[in-house]
Nucleic acid binder design. Sequence first.
RNA 1: GGUGACGUAGCCAAGUGGUAAGGCAGGGGCCUGCAAAGCCCUCAUUCGGCGGUUCGACUCCGCCCGUCACCUCCA
Length: 468
Amino acid sequence: MPREIHFFNTLTRRVEVFHPLEPGHVRMYTCGPTVYNFVHIGNLRTFLFEDVLRRTLAAFGYRVTQVMNLTDIDDKTIKGAAAEGVSLREFTDRYVAAFFADIDALGIQRAEHYPRATDFIPQQVELVQRLTARGHTYVQDGSTYFRIATFPGYGKLSGLDLDEVKAGARVDADEYEKEDVRDFVLWKAAKPGEPAWETALGPGRPGWHLECSAMGMTLLGESFDIHTGAVDNIFPHHENEIAQSEGATGKAFVHTWLHAEHLVVEGQKMAKSAGNFFTLRDLLEKGYDPLAIRYLLVSVPYRQKLNFTFDGLHAAAAGVERIGNTLRRLAHTPPAVGEGSLPAETVDEFFAEFDGGLADDLNTARALAAVHTLLTKVNQALDAGGIGDGGRRRVEAAFAHLDAVLGIVPKAAAADTADADVDALIAERNATRKTREFARADAIRQELTARGIVLEDTPHGTVWHRTK
RNA sequence: GGUGACGUAGCCAAGUGGUAAGGCAGGGGCCUGCAAAGCCCUCAUUCGGCGGUUCGACUCCGCCCGUCACCUCCA
């Protein structure tokens, strides 16, 4: 039996116990990138939340089937391809590859499916036809629209009052003519110079929302468990997905909707015009460790705004280092005879608190606090009587669990353990230390420091590791 | 104008009726030839402000101040 987990469901605005439709198997759809540019750290915050979600579910014993769409047809991709005079596919392929490179760099696990909107045109057309058969659509100037007046549940996700929307200041930003400003386009009539498909709906291309409904239902079924995105997707995107999907099937589309809050930079909204806009590449070029970036973006619970600051990034780097240092100490310290100084309960308490935090709507801050408490206790035990084999296995299991869920445990490089040249220098240094020739000893240490190697003289001998 | 969040130490942040987790930074100490790593002590008489409810409120209610998000294509 998988562990019980609670989520705040945007649809009900309450924290609920989660029950997948098929016991033990979670089907989830996570809104992915529009592939017209490199993803920025705000996008990454959302993808990292989704990554922690799937890792937590897996660690809790659920089977997970995740879909993440790649939006490769919309105004921005069309414009980008046209600007460079290349095909839409050629243009978007480049950013699809960049997207995978970025999520790999951050250790984001791959979803089971990455459907592209342009590969699912027939499914999208069929969905519109089903909607038409049920009287939810109308055609104007070659475009097909969804008439929201035919869907009584419209607004249930966002809680928006449609009369207010109608009265709102920003209306009809769309270039297409609609019967009612609140209606949205399902299928856009072909325009000169834009990609178009010849279909039963006439020549054209899918509207923005259509792909997610069509691909989600094709790959996960007409009803599935979880749908995620960032808060700005609640309206109109997710609201429209519900209308399209439930209008076509008459069934509940998604049971649990989870939305990540935005990331801000130094307290300000991230914007290119404000000069505080960062992609992963920008940060890596500045020399930041991807693991530290991951730690920072994962450390604030997903429903809180995350204030990205360079101070915070340094703190995150320190956190990652502390995990690595403790792991290294554990490896270098000889096992204690017997049980040693780390009670089994300490690790039990870690698991209880770490998992308890995650089960509480993915409270990663609470989980991380448990991690630091464990680190302190492990170090205390290492300073005291050491840790026996049994205790070591328990601690290693705890680190493995931490890494499986949050993915923030640094890997020890194999090179750190074997290098004859370094070993020779260390032997020489220790010989000079014995004879109290500290000037020579320090010179050797400085030389190694210059080579990116840090020495530590422990009670069990001198150990070394490379700096990042 | 409508809807919804949020405001906890220098910074990030948990808690949400029983008397303030955790991390980073800072200060002091132990260990070390010196370091590094680690450990110990210290760091909010107080949770935006003012009232109210209560034996008791950071936690509930009201008002005010401030920051922010969404209101048709922005993760």
